[in-house]
Simulated assay, not measured.
Amino acid sequence: MSVSSVVLLELKAIDLSFGSSQVLKQLSLEVREGEIYSLIGPNGAGKSSVINIINGIYQPQSGQIIFAGQVLHNYKAKHAPYLGIARTFQNLALFKQMSVLDNVLTGRVLKSRHSLLGALLSLPSTQKNDDLQRFKAEEILKLLNLQEYRDQLVSSLSYGLQKRVELARALAAEPQFLLLDEPMAGMNHAEKRSIAKFIQKINQQLNITIFMIEHDLAVVMDISDHIVVLDYGKKIAEGTPQQIQEHPEVLSAYLGIQAL
């Protein structure tokens, strides 16, 4: 997907505190349509707090959240799916005793036109809707090479495959903006390489803008269009991967010259 000049998400002067601890300080950023936008920084820098603000889980004390040109007032997590925002979590949040296909189908809830009366009466329209939801879920399984696992319980899969199922479930909602909170955490090198390719595939084939937190700097530098570096809740650098690798404050204060 080519990066547009249109700003899809803007955070303006965001302040977030918990008690006397200030987590984010006057944070501003812009994410353009079509980007793979990565947020990096050491543990405790405030990265997950940023995703939780974009997802409506945290409400900042001050600043603005603007999505698709709309200032979000009283924004909560329940509103995010209706805006076209989906996410994965740092820790797996799957239904372990359900099949892969059924997990992905749970992501289709907002797209379903299922009615209780139609289900009780077994109306043709209900069957048609069920067939459509299954077809859409199967398309996502195919995109992420999960067809062979469709009927297996999620609990029987490797950790890397479970992370891929969680990604599939997020995609089932047909978002325009996807939040990935450490999508490669706990994976081996081969699994990371695989998931990185799927992230690029999602971005390019499904035209989904991606906002990602990830600790594997090699992957971040390889697939990102734009990178922001946080340290102690403040933005200390932003730019292309090349600009970040050459940024003196990043090299000295966070990454260390050896890291890159």
Rank of each mutant, 00 (worst) to 15 (best):
S125Y: 07
P248I: 14
L92T: 07
V228T: 05
P60T: 11
S125K: 14
L94S: 02
F67C: 04
E191A: 02
Q133Y: 02
S112R: 08
Q64C: 11
M187D: 01
L167E: 06
L143E: 05
Q64V: 10
G84D: 03
F198V: 02
A13T: 14
V104P: 00
H189C: 10
N188H: 08
S122Q: 15
L146C: 00
L110T: 06
K142M: 07
I208G: 01
A190I: 12
L27Y: 01
S5W: 04
L132Y: 15
V6Q: 03
D130G: 07
K111S: 10
E139K: 15
L217M: 15
I257P: 09
M212Q: 07
D130T: 06
E30M: 10
G160S: 05
L120W: 11
Q133M: 11
I14A: 03
S49P: 09
Q245P: 08
Q258H: 12
S155E: 10
V219W: 00
P81I: 03
E174C: 10
R32V: 00
N74S: 11
E166L: 03
L217I: 15
R150W: 02
I51L: 15
R108Q: 07
D181K: 06
I54L: 15
L11P: 00
V3T: 13
I257A: 14
P81L: 12
K111H: 14
V220F: 05
S28P: 04
K96E: 13
I65A: 04
L92K: 06
F135R: 15
Q26C: 06
N43G: 03
A237N: 11
L116Q: 15
I14D: 02
N103P: 09
Q147F: 03
L206E: 02
F89L: 09
Q147Y: 08
V250D: 01
L94Q: 02
F89V: 09
S125I: 11
L92M: 07
G34V: 02
K192M: 12
G63Y: 10
Q205D: 14
I85P: 00
Q204V: 10
K111E: 08
A185G: 15
K197L: 13
K78N: 11
L171T: 08
V104A: 09
E174K: 13
S194C: 10
E10C: 06
K47S: 09
G233I: 05
L251W: 04
L171S: 01
L251Q: 14
A185N: 09
L92P: 06
P248W: 11
S17G: 05
L143H: 10
L153C: 07
T106W: 00
S158W: 08
S158R: 12
T209M: 03
L255G: 00
I210W: 00
L217Y: 09
M1P: 06
F211Y: 10
G69S: 11
S99H: 05
V31K: 00
P124V: 06
E174A: 13
R150P: 01
L94C: 07
